[in-house]
């Protein structure tokens, strides 16, 4: 019965949730905010409205969910890419600590940032 207490289901759920959130939202956010608008291909709402939008608590909460899950999506997938792609499964513990550690640090930073604005 001990075997069922493996951490993999949590990590896989975060990976899956992150993959889905990233699939649904990242292309449009990247395309509109970070490519098309700076190039002047499309016009965003006025800066004041953009600031109001960004400071909206619900938007901040949603954004936190998106980046938090994206970071853990990266951690999980990258960990397995290192295992299989470079055949490093003997470094299992080290790689897991590094990838999920970085994802945790990034998430905490994101949480602090999104908490403190507005």
């Amino acid at each position: 019965m001990r075997a069922r207490r493996s951490r993999e289901p949590i990590l896989w759920a975060l990976f899956g949730g992150g993959g889905m959130m990233a699939a649904l939202f990242l292309p449009v956010l990247l395309g509109v905010l970070l490519v098309a608008a700076p190039m002047g291909w499309i016009e965003l709402v006025a800066f004041a409205d953009l600031q109001v939008l960004v400071r909206n608590p619900l938007v901040r909460l949603g954004l936190f969910g998106l980046v938090f899950l994206s970071f853990f999506h990266w951690a999980h997938r990258f960990r397995y890419t290192l295992y299989d792609g470079l055949q490093l499964s003997h470094l299992n513990e080290l790689i897991a600590i590094l990838t999920y550690g970085v994802a945790t640090a990034l998430s905490l930073t994101a949480g602090y940032l999104l908490w403190s604005i507005g």
Binding site: V67, H76, T81, A110, L113
Partner: peptide
Amino acid sequence: ELTCLLVAYVAILLLVFVAAVD
């Protein structure tokens, strides 16, 4: 599998964007 690097990069970039707007 390597698109995960891009996912993390875009997430960081979004945070930078939000901080700049704020």
